[in-house]
Simulated scan of single mutants.
Amino acid sequence: MPETEPWEYSLYIPNDPRAVTICRRTVRLILTMHGLIHHADTAELLATELTANAVLHTKGPAALRLRWRSGVLRIGAWDADPEPPEPPSDLAALVDAEQGRGLALVRACADVWGWQPLTRNGNRGKYVWCELAAA
């Protein structure tokens, strides 16, 4: 049974493509432990796309954040690049593309998504997030 109490996890990751796999597996483990296994497949896909963008398209560290509150799972990735993400294309137009599908998949699979610039302790970056509502 899913938990009703809010919780939040943050995983700080290096700029290393192997971090994407670690994040994906960590998401499944967290959701399993909190009784939210029915969200695991979609959440893994979303976390993979967000962290892959953060790691592959920036030069600095990144972080993955999972938050459960009021029946909504928020998945977000922070990176040190303050530039906004490229707007997602229509997923149907990207069927044969070898890259560029990440945010289109996020837009298609999440209930809502967005991004916001962040400034902390003089450091600039952005936070790209999406949400899944409880089924």
Rank of each mutant, 00 (worst) to 15 (best):
G60I: 01
I37H: 11
D90Y: 07
G114D: 01
V20Y: 06
A62Y: 05
D111S: 02
P17H: 01
K59Q: 14
L11I: 13
D41K: 14
T21I: 14
A92L: 15
A133H: 11
C23R: 11
C109G: 10
L73T: 00
G71N: 00
L91N: 04
L66T: 02
G35H: 00
A134E: 03
T119V: 15
G102T: 00
I13S: 13
L64M: 10
W129R: 02
E3W: 08
P61T: 12
L91K: 06
A104Y: 02
L103V: 09
L105F: 06
H38C: 08
T48Y: 09
D16S: 03
N123F: 11
A108V: 02
S10A: 15
L105K: 03
R24T: 15
R101M: 14
A134R: 04
W68S: 01
V112K: 09
G76Q: 09
R67I: 06
T58A: 10
C109S: 11
V27I: 14
W7H: 03
L46Q: 01
D90A: 08
L11R: 11
L66K: 07
W115I: 05
N15F: 04
A104M: 02
D81K: 05
R120V: 13
I37Q: 13
K59G: 15
A133I: 00
L29T: 15
A135D: 07
A40G: 05
W7L: 07
E44Q: 14
A97G: 09
L45W: 05
A92I: 12
E49A: 04
E86L: 14
Q99G: 12
A104G: 03
L46H: 03
A110S: 02
Q116L: 13
L29I: 14
P14A: 12
A77E: 06
A54G: 09
D16L: 04
E5M: 10
